[in-house]
């Protein structure tokens, strides 16, 4: 999820049909620069070296859970093309997701710290020295507990994954100038060490004097390990 605004200009994006590091490249209609949709970086063309601003989103969640939390949501309707309606309730990549095969190029992946097709939550935060810190949180950590309180570099993080709705979110644990620690209450509701209750789908406090306050959400992705490790080989893994 990226902003389409960059340096005061607005861009629209299409699919280039080209691959780089095993992922499709986008291009912008205005300059035909090629952009990585994994990193948001322009890798070829007039805007090479520029980077799109990542925006926060819920990268995946069951429709019913989203609707419950955002009842006024609109939903993308099914386009009609060549007189044919697209299939709305079918995953054309189901076989790929179910297979052991990594990527589309058939290349060998060598980072065997995790199995290639392990799903991880990929997180990146800036460090004080201007570099970026990367950490992968394997979804297997969330089978018993929906949250992890962690610190990556200087940044206290709350990592959330609900196995029921497949919702993922990453928040900072900084609230009103202190660092909170969270524990699970039920489903996607947690309580922090001051007694405030939070909904981690919306990121909003639901009780106490902080009711309505928002946790600061960070960009998060659900991604296969092989792809995360290919783009960010320096990543650490939460164990």
């Amino acid at each position: 999820m990226y902003s389409r605004e960059l340096d005061g200009e607005t861009y629209t994006f299409g699919v280039s049909g080209k691959l780089w590091r095993d992922a499709l490249l986008m291009y912008d209609h205005q300059t035909r620069t090629l952009w990585s949709h994994i990193t948001g970086e322009a890798i070829k063309g007039p805007l090479k070296g520029k980077r799109l601003k990542p925006l926060v989103s819920t990268p995946q969640i069951a429709w019913k859970t989203w609707l419950l939390n955002y009842p006024s949501t609109l939903i993308l309707s099914v386009p009609t093309r060549d007189g044919m309606r697209e299939s709305l309730n079918q995953d054309v990549y189901a076989d790929y997701h179910a297979s052991q095969r990594a990527g589309v190029s058939g290349m060998e992946y060598t980072d065997d710290r995790l199995p290639n097709k392990s799903l991880v939550i990929g997180v990146q935060v800036p460090a004080k020295d201007g570099t970026t810190q990367f950490r992968a949180y394997p979804l297997t950590h969330f089978t018993k507990m929906a949250i992890i309180n962690d610190t990556l570099g200087e940044v206290p993080l709350l990592i959330f994954h609900d196995k029921g709705s497949f919702a993922t979110a990453v928040f900072t644990r900084n609230v009103a100038r202190d660092i909170r620690t969270f524990s699970v209450q039920d489903k996607h509701f947690v309580e922090d060490n001051t007694g405030t209750r939070w909904n981690l789908i919306t990121g909003e406090a639901t009780s106490g004097k902080e009711k309505g306050t928002q946790l600061e959400r960070l960009p998060a992705v659900n991604i296969y390990w092989f792809a995360w490790a290919r783009y960010y080989p320096e990543t650490s893994i939460y164990r």
Partner: peptide
């Protein structure tokens, strides 16, 4: 599964299958 976004009180859902 959908991707969900919300900005300034407006929310959108995009089906991953689409």
């Amino acid at each position: 599964p959908i991707i969900g976004v919300t900005f300034s009180g407006e929310s959108r859902a995009y089906s991953l299958y689409l």
